[in-house]
Amino acid sequence: MGEHEPILVEGLVKVYGKTRAVDGLDLVVAKGSVVAVLGPNGAGKTTLIRILATLAKPTGGRAMVAGYDVASHPAQVRRNIGIAGQSESIDEYLTGRQNLVMVGELSRLPRSEAKLRAATLLGRFELNDAADRPTKTYSGGMRRKLDLAASMITQPEVLFLDEPTTGLDPRARMGMWQLIRELGDAGTTILLTTQYLDEADQLAHNIAVVDSGKVIAWGSPDQLKTQVGGAVLEVTLPATADTEVAAALLRGAISKSVTVDQRRHKLTLPTTEETGLVTKVIRALDAGDIPVDDVTVRRPALDDVFMTLTGHGAETDKEAAA
């Protein structure tokens, strides 16, 4: 097997009826990297994953996974991938262990090895206590973990995760993040989709922002944030303080561009290269006898990135095509 990119997508198109769910999408994912495909509902994220996992056929363009064309060599692709979807693909009547052994055997592992892998994964994903209960009794977080474990049974080279934390409670979400990070650190190439901006920021080396079936921006989380602008300093005053007086004080002492949020008693000013900004702000306010509740440096969120790139927020809910 020669060198190949784990995922290579060129001009990919998928048409459902009149909808162009994927519309000329290009994407290259390097070996061992974690890439987040970020976009609102209906942007084509799930369709992209389904095509890459051989569950849907492309209408046009080309997609290579693990060195094989998904359209002409689906069987070879299937041997090298794992997929965990946003609706868990697990059998409710089977126990967690039986689910994993079944998927292992259907992935052509010998039964003994499938059992061994299942036991290891159940331990690793902290599902040991529930391993021999039917999955009907599992919580949402447990089901999601089991689904991820099933997709890891053959230790695939490429892993697709379609909205891995959608619908999970915050605790389960943290646990899922931890698992995904560890899989990524261990060298698995991971392509995940998400509509959560912080999730992409937390997990991915690179982010592909998609909208209407196309990649509209590509880069590391930091690069994308830089596109939008630098960090800002936020100063929160007590409710009793006069924000206008404080703003005037700061405009005189530090920077002209201070913005005021009266309702939330907040002042915002851009950070600059010079050091000691926070100290200067506090000294200036202190000298004016204005008390300070909180000072934070806020980097722009990916929400801001999305707003800048598309002109609409990431939450815009266009009807999903698939």
């Binding site: 569950l55 299937r78 041997r79 991938i81 693909s89 697990i90 059998d91 409710e92 992935s107 099933a150």
Partner: peptide, 17 residues
């Protein structure tokens, strides 16, 4: 409806099985 068919179809198994 349960989604298990999606799992089966993403595996390198015999299609008719």
């Amino acid at each position: 409806q349960s989604g298990i068919i999606d799992r089966f179809r993403s595996l390198p198994m015999s299609r008719g099985a």
